[in-house]
């Protein structure tokens, strides 16, 4: 799979290797991490993610490079799931390594919001009745 996508839930072990790589940057003093999990939203049992992959990869590359130009930002990692992700599992993990906490806190929220609005990714929410509904993102 491409470095932005995993088949199935995003393995949280990814954080361990990212953390080790981030720690090797002597000019970085803050790391922020966002883990988006599938929530048991009443009837939802899991989400099946699909994407226009070439366009989504291009969008994630653009997001990554755009925010890497923000002052103080040293590194950004993004991993998003494709295929089935069950309740409690990670659908997306984002990590930002930066000089100081202000950038780490501020940029990670912007990166997550950008992923939700700029990457052609879709989620089919599977329900307990063996039906489905389509995930929508709040503004």
């Amino acid at each position: 799979m491409h470095r932005f996508f995993t088949q199935g839930p995003v393995p949280e072990e990814s954080l361990r290797s990212w953390s080790a790589e981030f720690a090797s940057d002597d000019n970085a003093g803050a790391t922020s991490i966002f883990i988006g999990r599938v929530r048991a939203d009443r009837v939802v049992t899991g989400i099946e993610y699909t994407a226009h992959e070439p366009m989504a990869i291009a969008a994630l590359e653009a997001i990554s490079s755009r925010f890497l130009h923000e002052p103080g930002v040293r590194d950004i990692r993004i991993l998003h799931a494709l295929g089935l992700v069950s309740v409690g599992q990670a659908a997306m993990i984002v990590a930002v390594n930066s000089g100081h906490r202000q950038e780490a806190f501020g940029v990670i929220e912007q990166v997550v919001n950008a992923i939700k609005t700029e990457a052609p990714i879709y989620g089919k929410e599977l329900t307990v009745t063996d039906g489905h509904r389509w995930k929508t993102n709040l503004p």
């Binding site: 994407a51 992923i115 609005t117 389509w134």
Partner: peptide, 10 residues
């Protein structure tokens, strides 16, 4: 040609 509804990643 791709028809893309509003995105819903994350």
């Amino acid at each position: 040609i791709a028809l893309l509804p509003p995105f819903a990643g994350g």
